[in-house]
Design a protein around this nucleic acid. Structure first.
Length: 497
RNA sequence: GCCAAGGUGGCAGAGUCCGGCCGAACGCAGCGGCCUGCAGAGCCGCCCACCGCCGGUUCAAAUCCGGCCCUUGGCUCCA
């Protein structure tokens, strides 16, 4: 079975066929860097990351581009706040650094390039000029708007009809536009003061004057690029006129992606993207999680609290294109899933390393279970990146391992080895890492725990169970999970290290 | 109002494209047993689903068709 994806453009699940059978051009609509990234961003990132990893698993060379929108009134509104910076560019830079750090902590594969709007103004101006020349855009008071009536297919992504679309953009634009649904490609002058004030955080002591945004020279005078045009210009610059995969959040379908299609296809006469994939949003109680509602957990808080593996298990516990419930319960469940996987992995590694591996035995049911799990995993991922099913497959390896290890003194060395390799290889597709980075202090901590456990073992041998339990409780209070087995006690250090 | 997605066990969440393997996965919670000084982990087994409602097609429907009810998202910045 080959990879199938759900294409928003057609509404169907289709076989995935990139233009070049060996390369995939993947563009992801990145962030406006005006706030720290939150879990909702992480959800989309992780799903795109899993797509990227799966495409590589299938043998494709993935050219992944993700932009940073570093020109925006919301960024200007942060000027002077905390120590973010004294102008739009430095505020953006602060948040970009923050964002890249968050991405690393989520174990995301790096994109090939993270283009920024501020570095692509010439390409944007060129594109706008082309649109004017071809009659798809017009200048008005130093601003340039896209004429939606000139593009017959406008609305094809979001299935909307022109006369049902209300005005786009801020009120001032309306008088300058021919059709209320026309959207800005280029905006004259600096940022709108009101817009900046609207986005300022309350109770923050900003500088006394309204900060200004950057402006650039253009054939229409000083101004700033519109929001939608950047993605078209940057994706064409770094990838091609036609993308294979264009991914973004569901909330961007209209107007952002609709406008990207209009301006790109009008300019090039080529299909802009062959497959449009949209990540669904988090659901919190009765509303979505979003920057504008302010009901979010930031990525750095989440990583600190749960660790990368638990977080990624959680974020891939549903399909990318289904809404996901965010709550303490759903996170806790993900934590249990990850723990179960990790325990089984650790147990398998321990068994393989043990002397018992010498007295080997063949366990066909273990090997079959592992092979079946691999098949299920592949099938699940090929079916529109069904990460929940993929997790199920991984969990079935865990069950097979535990079952094999249960009450057995002779191990199937090869079967266990295969289980370990499978967990590592397939887990990596989901960005899960069983092998934590062991640092010098972690090793030392391990040695100390071993020492405490030796003492506890002696207490138990002497029948001093009260003292033994006390030691176990105290270790647990430190986050160290102790498990008594026939071969002595074993332990797990807190996750998220 | 318009557009889109969705309604599956106590929770969460696959399956719906290509009807039968779904008497409904995986996990969590719950129950019983094994193991254990105890606990945890683990193993084995069980409980909980008339798959939103009504009608239709079919030998056969969670899956297809029609109608209705409800939820969420988009239509303004948002992953």
């Amino acid at each position: 079975m080959t990879l199938h994806v759900t294409n928003t453009l057609t509404g169907d699940r289709e076989p995935f066929e990139p233009q070049d059978p060996e390369n995939v051009l993947l563009y992801y609509c990145g962030l406006t860097v005006s706030d720290p990234p939150h879990l909702g961003h992480a959800r989309s990132w992780v799903h795109v990351d899993v797509m990227h990893r799966w495409l590589e698993f299938l043998g494709y060379d993935v050219r992944h581009v993700e932009n940073f929108t570093d020109v925006n009134e919301k960024i200007v509104a942060r000027v002077g706040e905390d120590d973010l910076g004294e102008d739009e560019a430095s505020v953006a830079e602060s948040y970009i650094e923050h964002t890249l750090a968050d991405m690393r902590s989520l174990n995301l594969l790096r994109a090939e390039v993270y283009p920024r709007v501020s570095e692509h103004v010439p390409e944007i101006v060129d594109l706008v000029e082309t649109l004017i020349e071809k009659g798809y855009a017009y200048e008005s008071n130093g601003s340039v708007y896209f004429d939606v009536t000139s593009f017959d297919e406008y609305g094809k992504l979001s299935n909307q009809k022109l006369d049902e679309i209300e005005s786009q953009g801020d009120p001032d634009e309306r008088t300058e536009k021919r059709h209320p649904a026309d959207f800005a490609l280029w905006k004259a002058g600096s940022v709108d003061e009101n817009a900046v004030h609207e986005h300022r955080h309350e109770g923050v002591d900003h500088c006394d004057h309204t900060p200004e945004g950057q402006t650039w020279e253009s054939p229409w005078g000083e101004g700033r690029p519109g929001w939608h045009i950047e993605c078209s210009a940057m994706s064409m610059t770094h990838l091609d006129e036609t993308l294979d995969l264009h991914v973004g959040g569901r909330d961007l379908v209209f107007p952002h992606h609709e406008n990207e299609i209009a301006q790109s296809e009008a300019a090039t006469d080529q299909q802009f993207a062959n497959y449009w994939l949209h990540c669904e949003l988090f659901q919190m109680d009765d509303e979505k999680m979003s920057s504008s509602l302010g009901n979010f957990v930031t990525v750095d808080e989440a990583v600190d609290r749960w660790g990368t593996n638990v977080l990624r298990t959680f974020l891939t516990a549903g399909s990318y294109n289904s809404k996901q419930l965010y709550s303490d319960e759903t996170i806790a469940e993900a934590e249990e899933r990850w723990d179960r996987l990790e325990r089984a992995y650790d147990a398998a590694v321990e068994a393989v390393d043990s002397t018992a591996a010498r007295t080997k035995v063949d366990d066909e049911s273990l090997r079959t279970a592992v092979d079946d799990a691999r098949d299920s995993f592949v099938e699940a991922m090929n079916d529109d990146f069904n990460t929940r099913e993929a997790q199920s497959a991984l969990l079935s390896v865990a069950t097979a391992v535990n079952s094999h290890l249960e009450d057995r003194s002779e191990f199937d060395y090869r079967g266990l080895r295969r289980a370990v390799d499978t967990l590592e290889e397939l887990g990596a597709v989901l960005g899960l890492s069983f092998v934590g980075e062991t640092t010098g202090t972690a090793d030392l901590a391990g040695d100390v725990v071993d020492l405490v456990l030796d003492v506890r073992e002696q207490e138990r041998a002497d029948g001093n169970y009260d003292r033994a339990d006390e030691l176990r409780d105290e270790l647990e209070a430190l986050g160290i999970e102790v498990q008594d087995t026939d071969d002595g006690a074993s332990y797990r250090l807190p996750s998220g290290e």
